[in-house]
Design a binder for these strands. Structure first.
Length: 399
RNA sequence: GGUGAGAUAGUCAAGUGGCCAACGACGAUGGACUGUAAAUCCGUUCCCUAUGGGUUCAGAGGUUCGACUCCUCUUCUCACCA
């Protein structure tokens, strides 16, 4: 039983520091039912969760299965600094009510994956504000600049002469201090968080709280482009709140290579099962598209339902394999004769009439399934199905 | 505080008085081929009912027939010195 649990906990992780500690904690749980805490930090500014976040959340859920109490930390204080990435050095401070609102939205989304009864949501402003200037000062004495510069992005920026705000040095310290205050047994995060996660261990030692947290790092999930990490700002994400059709379609649009990555980090399938799928594709007994469809079905079903996932698949086939018009299209209406280019802009399918004209010229625009090439076309009264490219549809009623 | 270098479209990056709506690369997007995969090929990539007009090269002025290019000031970034 312990071995099964450990295997599940370790699955997909990029690196584990102090694996022995995790083993001990689980052992104690199986023996005496002893609980332990697992901490994970989240940014209060982005309450729209995407699959990249769920990699971490699923890991937390796995811990919950084996006795863990989750410390779901919302970094409302640290968000004022912004995790040093070289960009967004200073961020807007969020008002208390905004943070509460975001936190609520987190709850709505997070508890689709996590067990609420085994999760505690905490805000770090609560104890960091209580630190005061003296507390803050003594926190900074636990570390020095040379070691701070060991952090990869600090190192790069320092060497390349990009500015580093002093406040950015404080960020890892505060994140580490959170672990001191919460007395966390384990902290998990992405590989990009390694430095900060280790800071937790360092500070727990410095503050002599009698334990040092184990650290489990998950790989960063690549976005739809397969290169950059999944993020909202890069618009390469699959949101957990995405419509079933979108979710299904987005997953199907990833590359075959990336599909295996998603399988490993997102699927509930065991590693052996995934190996079998890989073999099947390699010796051509399985079509990669089928394998990808199954993944899309699994993920879509997880956040919606099996039924909705199935109908998303049916819809997808309808539109893309049979080139039919989707079932649900946004409807627009207007009065009098309209010029096509204008109509496309009004329906939000094109950003400008210039762009619309170009697309028409290139044969990207279809009306009622017929390609049109006349950019001067006027739409008289009637109903039209407008289409730009492969995926943009709208219904327009002209009176 | 002093001195010097720089700021160009989503990003990187050419352009040092007219040939500039601005080379190129990446990205994005359309088409072909497919499995809405990858790879590849060919387009497009400021706005405007448009063989023309308008607004752009950090911001504000100025010189000039004409400025992304020259001058002045402002803001920001970097380097060296203090």
């Amino acid at each position: 039983m312990l071995q099964v649990a450990l295997k599940e906990i370790r699955r997909g992780s990029a690196e584990i520091i102090d694996d022995a500690r995790i083993e001990k904690l689980l052992e104690a749980y199986f023996k005496d039912g002893k609980s332990y805490t697992v901490k994970a930090g989240f940014d209060p500014t982005a309450p729209d969760l995407h699959l990249g976040h769920t990699v971490l959340l699923q890991k937390l859920a796995a811990f919950q299965k084996y006795g863990a109490k989750i410390q779901f930390l919302i970094g409302d204080f640290t968000a004022q600094i912004g995790d040093p990435t070289g960009k967004n050095v200073t961020r807007k401070t969020l008002s208390a009510s905004q943070i509460q609102e975001n936190a609520k939205s987190y709850k709505d989304q997070v508890f689709k994956i996590l067990d609420a009864s085994k999760t505690e949501i905490v805000f770090n402003s609560q104890w960091i504000n209580a630190l005061g200037a003296t507390g803050m000062l003594s926190l900074t004495t636990t570390f020095n600049v040379a070691r701070m510069l060991e952090r990869d992005d600090f190192d790069k920026r320092y060497k390349s002469g990009t500015s580093i705000a002093i406040s950015e040095f404080i960020y890892p310290l505060l994140q580490g201090y959170d672990s001191v205050h919460l007395a966390s047994d384990i902290e998990i995060g992405g590989t990009d968080q390694k430095f900060n996660l280790l800071m937790g261990r360092h500070l727990q030692r410095a503050y002599e709280i009698g334990k040092e947290q184990a650290v489990l790092m998950m790989p960063i999930l690549e976005g739809l482009d397969g290169v950059q990490k999944m993020s909202k700002s890069l618009n390469n994400y699959i949101g957990v709140a995405d419509e079933p059709n979108d979710m299904f379609g987005k997953i199907l649009s990833i590359s075959d290579e990336l599909m295996w990555r998603y399988y490993e980090l997102l699927s509930a399938k065991t590693l052996q099962e995934i190996e079998l799928l890989k073999k099947g594709v390699e010796d051509t007994t399985l079509h990669p598209k089928t394998v990808k469809e199954n993944l899309a079905l699994e993920i879509t079903a997880r956040f919606h339902s099996q039924e909705l996932a199935n109908s998303a698949k049916a819809e997808f086939e309808k539109v893309h394999s049979n080139h039919e018009v989707p079932t649900d299209i946004e409807e627009f209406s207007c009065k009098g004769e309209v010029w096509v280019a204008k109509a496309l802009v009004d329906c939000g399918m094109e950003p400008s009439t210039s762009q619309a004209r170009r697309d028409i010229k290139q044969g990207a625009v279809k009306i009622n399934q017929e390609k049109i090439l006349d950019e001067q076309l006027q739409l008289v009264a009637g109903e039209y199905i407008l289409q730009v490219g492969k995926r943009k549809f709208a219904k327009l009623k002209v009176d």
